[in-house]
Design a protein around this nucleic acid. Structure first.
Lengths: 136, 136
DNA sequence: CTTGGTGCAAATCTTTTGCACGCCT
DNA sequence: AGGCGTGCAAAAGATTTGCACCAAG
């Protein structure tokens, strides 16, 4: 089951049609680990800005993409069905974004924490900030 | 040592003067657990919008305030010197932001994770998303 | 014919900048 | 005078909306 199939199924299951703009947005995100909104818009050269926004909205609702907070802006990347679940560390000096190893214990603690407030967890984001190996 | 003192010292140590607008921004944040930028601007009724932006910038650099990502916007609250360290859960239905109990074990796991990539951690953010007690 | 999806243009909101003025030393 | 901090107005950016049109069922 490759990414394209997962993608098509996600759309089909929600009765949303696979159009050229949607495919373009998906492709752009497949070819780049992550993109800012501006980058995504320019990566989808013949798709209108507004359509990119509308598409990212629907994709986000379907879990096809995620918004990753970085500083106070955000970047877009494909959702968890397309990657292993992971988090990122951002180097405050060079800006590099480092993918971190998965950590089930960490995930369990989060569940736990939410549970203690009777909160039903559907997703989470972790953003680490600091200095990467080469910058420190 | 109360909040006001911590605040004044932070400014003094950085040779930044305590002006009326700065005090107003600080007060607004003290009186509300957290605020969006728009709320902060209107909470500081006689401070110009641009000054609020400039002030939040400098405060953020000094660690007096933090930006908390929520969805793809953010909210502002006082920095760690003024609270216990904690994270938030955001309800995707009603938008409520719930403060979570501190969890040292969680913090340790993050340190650990960063360490495994030779990353020196200076700060982090965790954002949980899901349904709050009343919305589920 | 009806619905979903699009491009385009305009509206709106958010954030940043330039500039002149007042305040303090 | 010299520097910092401010308000105000304008500029830039980012996001959303209204609308008319086209394509597919």
């Amino acid at each position: 089951m490759n990414s394209q199939n997962i993608f098509e199924n996600a759309l089909k299951q929600n009765h949303i049609s696979l159009t050229k703009p949607r495919q373009a947005v998906f492709d752009a995100l497949q070819h780049h680990k992550s993109l800012s909104m501006a980058e995504l818009v320019s990566a989808c050269s013949d798709v209108d800005r507004a359509s990119v926004y509308r598409t990212t909205d629907t994709f986000e609702k379907l879990g096809i993409i995620m918004r990753i907070p970085t500083g106070w802006k955000y970047r877009l990347e494909l959702g968890e069905a397309f990657h292993e679940h992971h988090h990122h560390a951002t180097c405050s000096s060079c800006g590099a974004s480092i993918a971190l190893p998965e950590d089930p214990a960490l995930e369990r603690r989060l569940q736990d924490l939410a549970h203690r407030r009777n909160f039903t967890l559907t997703s989470h984001q972790i953003e680490l900030t600091g200095l990467c190996e080469t910058c420190q």
